[in-house]
Nucleic acid binder design. Sequence first.
DNA 1: GCAATGTAGGACCGTACGGTCCAACGCGCA
DNA 2: TGCGCGTTGGACCGTACGGTCCTACATTGC
Lengths: 203, 203
Amino acid sequence: MQERRVQILDAAAALIAERGFTSTSVDDVIRGAKLSGKSHFYHYFKSKEELGYEVLNRQFERFAERGLAILREPMIDPLERLSLFIDGVVALQAESGGRRGSPFGNLAAELADAHEGFRVRIEAVFERWASQIGSLLWEARPMLQDDVDAVRLSRFIIATLEGAVLMTRVKRDLTVLEGIAADLKRFIAMHVRDAEQTERRPW
Amino acid sequence: MQERRVQILDAAAALIAERGFTSTSVDDVIRGAKLSGKSHFYHYFKSKEELGYEVLNRQFERFAERGLAILREPMIDPLERLSLFIDGVVALQAESGGRRGSPFGNLAAELADAHEGFRVRIEAVFERWASQIGSLLWEARPMLQDDVDAVRLSRFIIATLEGAVLMTRVKRDLTVLEGIAADLKRFIAMHVRDAEQTERRPW
DNA sequence: GCAATGTAGGACCGTACGGTCCAACGCGCA
DNA sequence: TGCGCGTTGGACCGTACGGTCCTACATTGC
């Protein structure tokens, strides 16, 4: 019953990550999920659009579990967690050999202008992501300079990571992402107190 | 003669920037360029794909003239030029009200995985862009710290800008881009000699 | 005057898309 | 045995796509 839904969602997620939403046809999903026919698919989802929304939600939940979770580890120093999180993004990208980009960034670029329904949902995803980093930064504020704007820094981190993943995908070269991730850490380090000392230390 | 080609290319560029390459049909382009019929279009371009390649090239040439040109102004201090360039990217994005993203980033996200022909051309675009910034950085090396890696810093700048434009498009909020652009300048300032003094100065 | 070239208009083709409809099947339940 | 119902297979629909082909007309240069 629900099993089949999950099967469809997984197949769709893989296809959408690979070729985008528009270029993934319902028939492709049906083949990928080994369904019998179209009515079988439409028995579980009322439209392709709705499938896309659910896939996006599931992708974020997976990302929240696998990537974002480290941000909340209570036993690790907050800034250390942030560094580990960035490493995690690099590792996640390495899994696909630098080919697949961020599922959110991909959908954003593809559909932000064309499809308002997706746009608001993707916006919500980035919002939740940013608020996770934001609250970590808030937690780390004793270690940060007084004038650090947590919201703004969160956005910078996300934008840079998304951009880096995109560049990596275009160049098919993971070292691009690794370099940018390292620089991003240095930028974050720039915001901790006593920047003169910590700036160049590999925290 | 060539006039019509230009007409078609302009119409196609506008449509592709707005809805992406895949979602722009040849018929849309024909309507946009006010052509009589399909054969008229195929008289000038042998395929939609080839049209896409030419549009991409033209977009980069326009960007080289309007955006990248400032990087080569000989009468301005190199780092000042870089700052002006970043302002230019923000201004360019402001023209479309933060809606349209980077034409390269959009195509990259849409086609990098699916279409190798586009991927290599987009890669070349970013390569040329990066080399422009790289040579500016090389020119500015007396003012920079010794260990600055020009190639790497160029990539960071481009990735961050592309990511910022994408986020801006998703959020429909130009202030996102403005904030990230300002932070990016601070990151660059971090690489100039005597960073303690210049770091927080709005150069 | 004639040929070549660009402009125009439209019929047409095969394919693929998202989505609908319906007939047949399997299975628990009485 | 017969009934109800969720599941399955697939034919089908209207539309749109990229692309081809053919005809006709206007312009230009020889």
